[in-house]
C-alpha cells in the first residue's frame, strides 16, 4: 500500500480514493469472472454454484427464517462453550499462575492434554455424552480452554518483576499487587488468547455440528451436501467467515478499550 502511494505522483482526492480501494479490485474481478464462467456453462452448478445463485439462496434462507434459526443455535453453542472454556481456563491459569503449588498441581497435566488434538476426542465425547447438545458444547469448551489457560498463565508469569517489587515498596498487600499489577499486566497476553480461542471455538463448532446434529449451520451444510446444493454449502461457509471476522473485530474493540495505555494504541 504505502509503496504504491509513494510511487504515484500528485494524487488528488479522487485518485486517493482510487488508491485506497483498488486493492479490492482483484477479488471483485474474480467474482465477476466466476459469474461469467458459470453463466457460460463452464462451471457446473453441482460443482460450484454461481455468485448470483449464492446471493439468491442467501436472501431466501434469511427471509424464510431458516438461516437465522440455525445461526441462533450455532451462536448459542459457541457462547455457552466459550463461556465455560473461559471460566475454566481462567480459573486454572490463576491457580497455576499465582502460586508455585498451583503450578505443580495443574501445569504438567494441562500441558500434556494440550498436545492432544482435541478434535480427535469426538468419538469419545459421543460415547460419553451421546449426540445431544452436550458433546458439542463440551468440544467447544475444551478447545477454547487451552489458549485461555496458556496465554493467561504466561501473561501472569511474564509481568515485570520490577513492577511487583516497586508495588511492594509502596506498601501494597499481595492481594492488591495481584489486582493492581499482576492481572492488568497479564491482560494483553490473555486477550491474544481470547482471539485465538474464538477461532478455535468456530473450528470446534464446524466439526461438532457435522456429526449427528439436527440444527445449526453445520447441519444446514451437511444436509445441503446430500442434495448437491453447493449454493447452500457456500452460504454456510460465508456465514462462518462472517462470524469469525466479527468475533475478531469485537476482541479488537475490546483491546482498544482496555489496553488504551499501550503505545501502539496511543499513536492513533
Amino acid at each position: 500500500m504505502s509503496a504504491a502511494v509513494a510511487s504515484t505522483p500528485a494524487p488528488g482526492t479522487g485518485s486517493d480514493q482510487w488508491l485506497r480501494n483498488r486493492r479490492y479490485l482483484p477479488p471483485l474481478l474474480i467474482v465477476v469472472l466466476w459469474q461469467v464462467a458459470a453463466s457460460a456453462g463452464l462451471i457446473p452448478t453441482r460443482t460450484l454454484a454461481s455468485p448470483a445463485m449464492i446471493a439468491g439462496t442467501f436472501a431466501e434462507l434469511i427471509t424464510s427464517g431458516e438461516l437465522p434459526r440455525h445461526l441462533l443455535v450455532s451462536l448459542g453453542r459457541v457462547a455457552i462453550g466459550l463461556g465455560i472454556g473461559i471460566v475454566v481456563g481462567t480459573t486454572f491459569a490463576l491457580i497455576a499462575g499465582l502460586s508455585r503449588r498451583g503450578e505443580d498441581l495443574l501445569d504438567a497435566t494441562l500441558q500434556m492434554l494440550r498436545t492432544l488434538p482435541f478434535l480427535a476426542l469426538v468419538p469419545l465425547f459421543i460415547l460419553w455424552f451421546g449426540i445431544g447438545e452436550t458433546p458439542k458444547i463440551a468440544l467447544v469448551a475444551l478447545g477454547t480452554m487451552f489458549p485461555i489457560y496458556l496465554t493467561l498463565f504466561a501473561g501472569i508469569r511474564g509481568v515485570d518483576a520490577k513492577l511487583i517489587e516497586a508495588g511492594g515498596t509502596l506498601g501494597l498487600t499481595r492481594r492488591e499487587q495481584v489486582f493492581h499489577i499482576v492481572l492488568p499486566g497479564a491482560l494483553p497476553s490473555a486477550l491474544v488468547g481470547l482471539r485465538y480461542a474464538l477461532g478455535v471455538a468456530w473450528l470446534s463448532l464446524v466439526v461438532a455440528e457435522q456429526i449427528n446434529a439436527d440444527t445449526g449451520i453445520g447441519f444446514l451444510v451437511m444436509t445441503a451436501r446430500d442434495f448437491l446444493r453447493t449454493d447452500i454449502i457456500l452460504v454456510g461457509l460465508i456465514v462462518y467467515a462472517i462470524l469469525g471476522l466479527s468475533a475478531d473485530q469485537i476482541v479488537r474493540i475490546l483491546e482498544r478499550r482496555v489496553l488504551a495505555w499501550r503505545p501502539s494504541f496511543l499513536k492513533d
Binding site: A166, H180, W261
Partner: peptide
C-alpha cells in the same frame, strides 16, 4: 515510613499518572 526511587521510574503503565502516585 520508607520510600524508594529506582533507576527506572517503575510506573505502572496501565494506571494514569495520578493513580500511580496514589497507589497504596
Amino acid at each position: 515510613e520508607r520510600a524508594v526511587v529506582f533507576q527506572e521510574p517503575r510506573l505502572v503503565p496501565w494506571k494514569r499518572v495520578w493513580a500511580n502516585v496514589a497507589l497504596g
